[in-house]
Write a protein that binds this DNA or RNA. Sequence first.
DNA 1: CACATTCTGGACTGGTCTGTCAAGCATCGG
DNA 2: CCGATGCTTGACAGACCAGTCCAGAATGTG
Lengths: 194, 194
Amino acid sequence: MARPKEFDRDEVVKRAMAVFWEKGYEATSTEDLLRAMGIGRQSMYDTFGDKRRLYLEALQRYQAESGAQLIERLQAEQSPLLAIEQVLMAVAAETPAERARGCMYVSSIVELAQKDPEVASLARSGTILCETAFERIVREGKRKGEIAPCVDERKAGRFLLATVQGLRVMAKAGSTPETLRDIAAVALTSLKAR
Amino acid sequence: MARPKEFDRDEVVKRAMAVFWEKGYEATSTEDLLRAMGIGRQSMYDTFGDKRRLYLEALQRYQAESGAQLIERLQAEQSPLLAIEQVLMAVAAETPAERARGCMYVSSIVELAQKDPEVASLARSGTILCETAFERIVREGKRKGEIAPCVDERKAGRFLLATVQGLRVMAKAGSTPETLRDIAAVALTSLKAR
DNA sequence: CACATTCTGGACTGGTCTGTCAAGCATCGG
DNA sequence: CCGATGCTTGACAGACCAGTCCAGAATGTG
């Protein structure tokens, strides 16, 4: 350990994440990355190995952050059903730029899960994480009587994750916030106690 | 008009479509395309202009075909609700390879809608086509009493499209057919008359 | 049959891509 | 203060990429 790195590893991964998130994997050049990260070529290769490894690290970070945010949001409200509603409506409430950027997790699945086993593996673990988070809150909602007893919480959890991903694709396809809210509203009717 | 082309334009677009569908836009090289299409470089550039134009044509063809297939399937059943169920369950019923390949329409949105205005435009028109198809069948379902009268057909149509797209992403992420069926089943509960 | 036109095949070009090399520099331990 | 270690910088290499050029072949027309 002679000379310390002049950059903060965490910070540069974050910046790389932003670029990959915005442009996708293939469409991002190493030049793009270096410019955004503010480090030299060799520093990047020494620290992360290659472009793919950097991407995987950025993706892992994205998943960890957005997974944590999901769990947080789901517990932020007193009412489980309201919390779920907030999460679904959050996509509609984003700025146009955010809606166009979409979700890096979805993008990684669509672009890479088929050809990169490590991305596929991250996709599966991310899926389980989110499904489980939704499942827990659905169980909680049933307990509180907000969600119909006949709803299977495991199935509903999976359904809610699929709904979020559907919303993200629709958002990227240019659907208006109103349309996205409509979708979220219909999705919620499958849970509500009547 | 001296010498006729040695290939069938429709056929080679179809083959190009298969490659783009499988690999995405950026990850497909012109070499890949030429090999699959079975034509020479110059023939491709003379006939289609460039890689992007070829992609757009392939995407249009995909949308036309899959849109027609959707409408056909929605009208294949006596019961509108059953037809919707068949469409949703069809994703779960695909082979693993088909599920991994996913939907070219979704892929184009995620990879390109943000940066290519023409892809964005195709995305919007495709969205309207599918939403409308679902909307019609929901209206039909309400008329026949299979779908609850309180269901707004426009909103439900949009919701069903989002559900299909969510299913496609989940499928690509490695979800099992069982999981996909669960998702479809929950989605259907938001429509059913009780 | 002969010419004009269009298509085909292959070589080629300029540019961009990812990843490496080498030389100099900063820092830590002794 | 000095040497070893490891970081940084910029130049560079080899591969690949999309797209063009050109010569030759094939076909319809007069």
